[in-house]
């Protein structure tokens, strides 16, 4: 599998008695949108956290573009091109959308021990931030304070902040959580566009969106991948039906 951008090999993580990641292997190919689904508590967020390096796995390896990044700290992984969005929105609410994203750009622009030049005047920070906001459709709203924006817009800022890090692979943790039908549709359109430029690992509870967007789907239950395949194959898979899709309603309610 030469075109795998991300390879996860036999990853395991326990929290006391809970097995959050259980001998998990999967890969995301160049140009692919790979969806990761599974009931609440299946270990989806925990997997993302291990990929970004914020959490250390007990065993197993993570390869990015063929290189073993298992022992790299989080900031070095993000410099290589791994960017995540958060399941729970976490922004700088007292700053404008543009300031939020510009900070994400600044995080990748060397050290910040620069005390004199006005940061808001630096094209090196502002231009990529503007571009990322325009990309997610917030070009007109850049100068509005995040606190005054809707939840749907917050989700979009989250994505813009991930894009601002110049990623090669986007790790999106439930970008549609809490969105209304209209906002969800907007997000699906956006993800479909992003998919053209980035490899994406998408964690999402919205099955309609997942089946519409994904090239491949992996189903996670109790930290273990019980199936990986094209959407049609997953839909037809008996194990998956039993373990997950049958109880989908109950699950989405939690999400």
């Amino acid at each position: 599998m030469t075109d795998a951008l991300l390879q996860v090999k036999n990853l395991s993580k326990r929290f006391g008695g809970i097995v959050a990641t259980d001998d998990l292997s999967l890969d995301v190919r160049q140009g692919e949108l790979h969806a990761l689904i599974g009931p609440n508590g299946a270990g989806k967020t925990t997997l993302i956290t291990q990929l970004t390096g914020q959490l250390t796995p007990d065993s197993g390896a993570v390869l990015f573009a063929g290189e073993d990044i298992s022992s790299l700290p989080a900031y070095q992984r993000s410099q290589l091109g791994l960017a995540r969005s958060f399941q729970i929105t976490s922004l700088f609410l007292d700053m404008t959308a543009l300031d939020n994203v510009a900070l994400a750009v600044q995080a990748h622009a060397g050290h910040s021990f620069r005390f004199w030049a006005p940061a808001r005047g630096e094209a090196e920070l502002r231009d990529p931030a503007r571009a990322a906001l325009a990309r997610v459709g917030l070009g007109e709203r850049m100068n509005v304070r995040a606190a005054a924006m809707s939840h749907g817009e917050h989700r979009l800022i989250e994505i813009a902040m991930a894009l601002a890090a110049k990623p090669r692979l986007l790790l999106l943790d439930e970008p549609m959580a809490g969105l209304g039908p209209e906002e969800s549709a907007r997000m699906v359109t956006l993800l479909r566009e992003l998919k053209r430029d980035y490899a994406v690992l998408l964690v999402e509870h919205d099955m309609e969106a997942v089946f519409a967007l994904a090239d491949r789907i992996t189903v996670l239950v109790y930290g273990r991948a019980i199936a990986t395949g094209a959407p049609d194959a997953i839909r037809a898979n008996e194990d998956v039906k039993r373990a997950y899709l049958g109880e989908q309603k109950a699950v989405t309610r939690h999400g």
Partner: peptide, 25 residues
């Protein structure tokens, strides 16, 4: 000058949401 510089943005970002600042590196 300090609060409007890159350094100042980091300090104010940490006031606003320190966890997030660490998460973005």
């Amino acid at each position: 000058r300090i609060v409007n510089s890159r350094f100042g943005m980091v300090v104010q970002g940490a006031r606003s949401n320190e966890k997030r600042m660490q998460a973005i590196g």
